[in-house]
Design a binder for these strands. Structure first.
Lengths: 98, 98
DNA sequence: TCCTTACTTTCCAATGTGGAAAGTTATATC
DNA sequence: GATATAACTTTCCACATTGGAAAGTAAGGA
């Protein structure tokens, strides 16, 4: 068995973020930041990493006065996450009581 | 939700290794090394990391002439892995088609 | 005693991660 | 129109992790 985990996704904060994004259509920067409990600079860099991998799409839009950044998983991002989670599940498969 | 992933377990090679160990009672160094496809030095260091965390037990025993190193998950190691996998599953929970 | 096997440790380079602080940019407010 | 503020983005820096090569070690054979 060749378990290939995508390093872009596997980092804890990005994994959590990708799972959050996968569950919704779009979510804003601030909400993700609070969920991950990291600084703005750190989230900004993770978003950039995912964006450069083509996994996340970023849209800036001013909603009711204040500008916000909206994040969403791209199609390739969803596929990559699906593959990643499948790999994780395959690894877990042999572990008892899971 | 507070998703805490254990960094000792989360590293890809150690995660795979822990899952392998969880599935059996004992397994030898060489077999794990082949499965992970890493150098001896690297596996040795991962084993040490897990051993120092109290997650893995190492037993050296000569079986049929050649000395071998046998690895097994300790009770705390099993618990930690179980917790880690539970966290991963909780993260995945909201992801569609998983 | 020397050799071989099976790791272990050391050395070193490359990457990744995180926060603080400075920098940007698009609205509000005056 | 100038300035302030919010919401990120970039840069700077420190530190930890990861990996392989090479040197080191320990146990058993020839």
């Amino acid at each position: 068995m060749n378990f290939e985990l995508d390093p872009v996704i596997h980092a804890p904060n990005r994994l959590q973020m990708c799972c959050m994004l996968a569950a919704v259509d779009t979510i804003d920067f601030a909400t993700v930041r609070e969920a991950l409990d990291v600084s703005e600079s750190v989230l900004s860099k993770h978003v950039k990493t995912l964006e450069e991998a083509g996994y996340v799409k970023v849209r800036k839009a001013a909603s009711d006065g204040r500008q916000r950044t909206w994040l969403s998983l791209s199609k390739p991002g969803r596929e990559a996450l699906k593959g990643h989670l499948a790999t994780l599940k395959a690894m877990m498969a042999g572990v008892p009581e899971t």
